[in-house]
Amino acid sequence: MKTFIALAFLVAGISASPYYVENSLDISTSDEERIVTGNIVSAIEKACQSIKDAGLDPLHIEKQDSKYALPVPVIYNSESLVEEVRSTGLSNVVIHRMNYAVVTSRLTFDIELPLISFSIGSASAEATLFGSKMGVKASGSVDVRSIRVTGTIRVNVGVISGISIRSVDITFALKGIDSKVKLVIQEKDYSEIVNKFLGSTIPDTLKTYSSEINELLGILLLEAINENLSSTNSIL
């Protein structure tokens, strides 16, 4: 889901930053550090602004309906209606720490999405399939609290080989999910099941497999950054 947006921003920033460092003359170590971190922060800010410009944060759908039917409606037809859909917090990326040490070629970061809120005033859908009718009704809200990614990225810089990432250590944390969803399918209430899954099962699973998840994120981020850097180095 969208919880990995901050990681994507970081990849974009790291991929862009070495160009300015390698092509700068007579700059101090502290200047190089500021250039690297400045480029990454700038990439994150631009990506957040793009989310806002696209109308995704805040998102507000006052009312939207749709209808569809085959030429023979009894085989299949459907109609749906959603009202007062709202979402906030997707672009609110907080950078708690972003440091790059030139001497050790090490980048440390701490990025957080404090709160992503999603709510639906009401949603309903009805469909007919070969004469059988099906209906769904939903409403409520889901708050995802504190998605936080911290880590360390170690960089290799070679005159011939260019820039590559030696290792990536990632820690992903989720504070919790507050789910207040009302879901009725075929007049049967599934609200308790959904709220338990979102509010308990997902956070508990993430905690149980935190080591494996962190390892996977590190591998994926390492591959993504090195792939982007390969194309960047070939241009320089």
Rank of each mutant, 00 (worst) to 15 (best):
T37G: 00
T37D: 01
T37Q: 02
G38K: 03
G38M: 04
G38A: 05
G38D: 06
V41K: 15
S42I: 05
S42P: 00
A43Y: 04
A47M: 15
A47W: 04
A47V: 05
C48H: 01
C48Y: 00
Q49G: 04
S50W: 03
K52V: 14
A54D: 10
A54Y: 12
G55H: 05
L56N: 06
D57T: 09
D57C: 12
L59H: 02
L59N: 02
L59R: 02
L59Y: 10
E62S: 10
E62N: 09
Q64K: 12
Q64G: 06
D65N: 11
D65Q: 13
S66H: 04
K67E: 06
Y68C: 05
A69W: 05
L70F: 11
L70P: 02
L70T: 06
P71E: 07
P71V: 12
P71G: 14
P71H: 14
V72C: 13
V72H: 10
P73V: 10
V74T: 11
V74Q: 10
V74W: 10
I75K: 05
Y76G: 07
Y76H: 15
N77W: 07
S78T: 13
E79K: 09
S80N: 09
L81T: 06
L81E: 06
L81C: 07
E83V: 08
E84S: 11
V85S: 03
V85Y: 07
R86T: 12
R86K: 14
S87G: 13
G89I: 03
L90Q: 05
S91W: 00
S91V: 06
N92M: 11
N92H: 15
V93E: 00
I95H: 01
H96M: 05
R97A: 09
N99F: 13
V102W: 01
V102Y: 06
T104Y: 08
T104N: 13
S105H: 14
S105E: 13
R106S: 14
R106I: 09
R106G: 02
L107E: 01
T108H: 03
F109P: 00
F109W: 05
D110A: 03
I111Q: 00
E112D: 09
E112F: 07
L113N: 12
L115F: 10
S117T: 14
F118D: 04
S119R: 08
I120P: 00
S122I: 10
S122C: 07
A123D: 05
A123H: 08
S124F: 07
S124D: 08
S124T: 06
A125C: 06
A125S: 11
A125D: 04
E126V: 08
E126A: 10
E126W: 05
A127H: 04
A127Y: 03
T128V: 14
L129W: 09
F130W: 14
S132I: 13
K133P: 02
G135Q: 11
G135P: 00
V136M: 12
K137C: 02
A138T: 14
A138R: 07
G140H: 11
V142N: 02
D143S: 15
D143I: 07
R145N: 15
R145E: 14
R145H: 15
R145D: 13
S146Q: 15
I147K: 01
I147E: 01
I147A: 03
I147R: 00
